[in-house]
């Protein structure tokens, strides 16, 4: 039982991390209907910028995180402004491929600047843990969960109560109609990329802090967040969190029990499991659990 609870805790914590990454995908998709493949690159550069602020410049950790979020938001804004802005109305395939191009550039830029070796993010949590009964929880996991819930709350308040959030929802539904109502889609797109950048930096911090170290591997979390966003439905923030949790728990439980149940699947099956779950769910519900079905008009 203790083992099960322990696995659940690490699964939930992992799930919140995926959810935080996934929220970045969701906000860009909601505004522009494009899956942003460069999110992993933004996560990566966000985390490395925070590292740069704390360890290289010696700034306090909280300030570094805020600065890292602002800087990554800036990168997102610039990218939207100088490249994707020209692609509005172009085929979705072309826009997706452009974000993949950006992913390649960010990935290799980061490795070229900071090198491939693991670094210590310099966060205050370190490897310290708290114990509930017999279940051990790392402090950084608690912070990760708290931050994700906080960001989710902000997302909810933003979409529900601010004019920009309303404009974003309207633009996602019908860009022309929103323009006719006086909502600037340029501002909406820039805001989406800015928010996605800031979320990405936060996600990067939550992945690379504590016992886990900062290395280019950080971007793999973004690839594993794909099953989460697909599972939850690509345009639903709540779906992203639930999808993240499902994927995280599945992964953690698979890691814990696959050796006993189905050893023939081989070691390391847990990192494949999210994709297996994703394919199965998509075959039953092609738009995820909470996604909006695409309506085909003839």
């Amino acid at each position: 039982m203790t083992e099960f609870l322990q696995l659940m805790v690490s699964g939930v914590s992992l799930g919140f991390t995926y959810a935080l990454v996934a929220l970045g995908f969701v906000i860009i998709y909601k505004a522009t209907e494009v899956i942003n493949f460069s999110q992993g690159g933004l996560v990566m550069i966000g985390a490395y910028l925070v590292y740069n602020f704390t360890s290289t410049w010696g700034l306090p950790f909280a300030l570094s995180v805020v600065l890292g979020m602002l800087a990554t938001a800036g990168i997102g804004l610039i990218f939207e402004r100088i490249i994707l802005r020209r692609m509005v109305g172009a085929p979705v395939f072309a826009q997706v491929m452009i974000t993949i191009g950006l992913l390649f550039i960010l990935q290799n830029l980061v490795t070229a600047i900071w090198g491939p070796d693991p670094l210590n993010l310099g966060d205050p949590w370190g490897v310290s843990t708290v114990t509930f009964g017999e279940v051990v929880i790392q402090v950084r996991q608690l912070w990760g969960m708290g931050l994700t819930l906080f960001v989710l709350l902000l997302f909810f308040l933003f979409f529900r109560f601010t004019p920009l959030g309303l404009a974003m929802r309207a633009t996602a539904i019908d860009q022309e109609a929103a323009l006719a109502q006086g909502m600037s889609s340029k501002r909406v797109y820039m805001a989406a990329w800015g928010i996605a950048g800031a979320t990405a930096a936060l996600a990067g911090v939550s992945i690379a802090s504590g016992a886990a170290s900062l290395s280019p591997e950080v971007q793999f979390y973004a690839l594993l967040a794909f099953p989460a966003i697909i599972l939850g439905g690509i345009d639903s923030p709540l779906g992203a969190v639930i999808g993240g949790l499902v994927i995280g728990i599945t992964q953690s439980l698979t890691a814990g029990y696959i050796g006993d149940i189905a050893p023939w699947l081989g070691a390391g099956f847990e990192s494949v499991m999210p994709f297996v779950v994703m394919v199965l769910v998509l075959l039953v519900r092609p738009y995820g659990l909470f996604g909006t079905p695409e309506i085909k008009r003839v």
């Binding site: 099953p227 690509i234 994709f275 998509l282």
Partner: peptide
């Protein structure tokens, strides 16, 4: 047949990981 566009791209991405395993 069931998925279109970007969903298909991500499922085929999954193929890479399942295939590698």
């Amino acid at each position: 047949l069931r998925l279109s566009g970007q969903y298909l791209a991500i499922v085929t991405l999954g193929l890479l990981f399942i295939g590698e395993h």
